[in-house]
């Protein structure tokens, strides 16, 4: 997994609450059996006039000009700024894959949907929760300043604004550690393999009907 240490990038604002996973990556893309290649279809319905599918050439597709990712000033963006409950809806991991494949490294919002929030950390993306007021301030700054960028320093849990201001954010210590090190979660868990085995032995004694039923 990609490690996340510090990252500086252009911020793109999407001023909408409750952006669901269908909007992030519409369901027709779930059919792919790959983990990569979803970037060109990120926000497909909001971004293009026509319908997309996995493998479609996006170079000639008609764009919805008002959508931020289609505007010149936000090209090369790697930080999304958005509103409440981002990522609600299904558990599809294609959503973080699509964001990652597009080049997004961090998302800033007042709140995230649970499953999506979890899925971000498993894919090297950093979701940052800031209070509503701060998010609104950032929206104003982004809109007023073309090329607006932020620097995110995960180790110090700080976002640095161009004007020198700093915003602190909260993050769970374990998640932070894994992101900083780019640690694979399965490998981490398997460090506890003996504990799992011991639990399993006891569980089999307590609830034997849970075992060997399916063949």
């Amino acid at each position: 997994m990609k490690a996340f240490t510090t990252h500086k990038g252009i911020v793109a604002p999407i001023d909408l609450a409750n952006i669901d996973t269908d909007m992030i990556i519409p369901k027709q893309f779930l059919k792919s059996i790959n983990r990569t290649g979803f970037g060109p279809y990120l926000f497909d319905e909001m971004r293009y006039e026509d319908e997309g599918w996995y493998g479609k050439d996006c170079a000639t597709r008609p764009l919805k000009k008002e959508f931020p990712l289609n505007q010149a000033r936000y090209q090369g963006t790697s930080i999304l700024l958005t509103r409440e409950n981002f990522g609600c809806g299904s558990s599809r991991e294609h959503a973080p894959w699509a964001l990652d494949d597009y080049g997004i490294r961090a998302i800033i919002a007042p709140s995230f949907a649970d499953i999506f929030y979890n899925n971000c950390f498993k894919n090297g993306l950093l979701p940052i929760i800031l209070d509503k007021g701060t998010v609104s301030e950032l929206f104003e700054e982004v809109e007023a300043n073309p090329g607006y960028a932020l620097e995110i320093d995960l180790a110090n849990q700080v976002i640095r604004r161009g004007n020198g201001g700093e915003i602190h954010f909260q993050i769970d210590a374990f998640r932070k550690h894994c992101l900083l090190e780019g640690l694979d979660e399965i490998g981490l868990t398997l460090q506890s393999a003996e504990k799992i085995q011991a639990f399993e032995t006891g569980h089999r004694e307590r609830q034997p009907w849970m075992f060997d039923a399916i063949r």
């Binding site: 991991e93 979890n118 979660e185 868990t189 398997l190």
Partner: peptide, 18 residues
Amino acid sequence: HGIGTSEVEHVLATQCLV
């Protein structure tokens, strides 16, 4: 509860969920 694809892999490999 519902899980994502990384967790599907995690459960297959470790029989556990974080």
